[in-house]
Simulated scan of single mutants.
Amino acid sequence: MFDLVDALAAIAAVTIALTFTSLDRRTAAVIGAAGSTIGVFLAWVAAPGAWTGTPVVPWIAAVLGAAGLVAGWSAVRLYDGVFAPPRVEQPDDTGAVTTIGR
């Protein structure tokens, strides 16, 4: 029972810490909650025996999960143009025509 409480406390703490230190709070809340939840779940699946008697494991897993998701989010935002088709510049046919409306 205390393992579940530790995991939920770790998820909440990492999410709150990431949210309060970010400029975009809504995105940070989603990334913090999702990343820490994924990290805790994967650590539990990978090593369920490490959870008994070691209250530090969920905290480390939550921090690493959130950091991994932040890194992934940053990479996607950085390379956003890689997935977009190349832009073709249309010729500018307006010239130097200026109209003055009334």
Rank of each mutant, 00 (worst) to 15 (best):
V57S: 04
R102Y: 05
F83P: 06
I31N: 02
T52I: 09
G49Y: 10
T27L: 10
I11F: 08
G49R: 08
V76E: 10
G101H: 15
I100E: 05
W51H: 05
D93L: 15
T98V: 15
M1G: 14
D24N: 14
V82P: 00
D80Q: 13
I11G: 02
T98W: 01
D80A: 14
W73T: 14
W51G: 00
D3R: 09
A17W: 08
G32R: 02
T21F: 10
R77E: 11
L18V: 06
A43R: 05
G49T: 01
A9W: 12
R77N: 15
L69M: 08
V40I: 12
Q90W: 08
T27R: 15
V63K: 03
T19N: 03
A96H: 13
T15C: 07
T98P: 01
A7H: 07
G68C: 00
I31L: 14
W73C: 10
L69T: 12
A67W: 08
V14P: 05
A50Y: 07
I60P: 04
A67D: 11
G65L: 00
I31R: 01
R102G: 12
P55M: 04
D6T: 01
A10C: 01
A43C: 08
T52V: 11
Y79R: 13
A84L: 10
W73Q: 12
A9D: 04
E89Q: 10
T37H: 01
A29D: 00
F2W: 12
W44Q: 01
T15N: 00
A61L: 02
I31E: 00
V82R: 09
V76H: 09
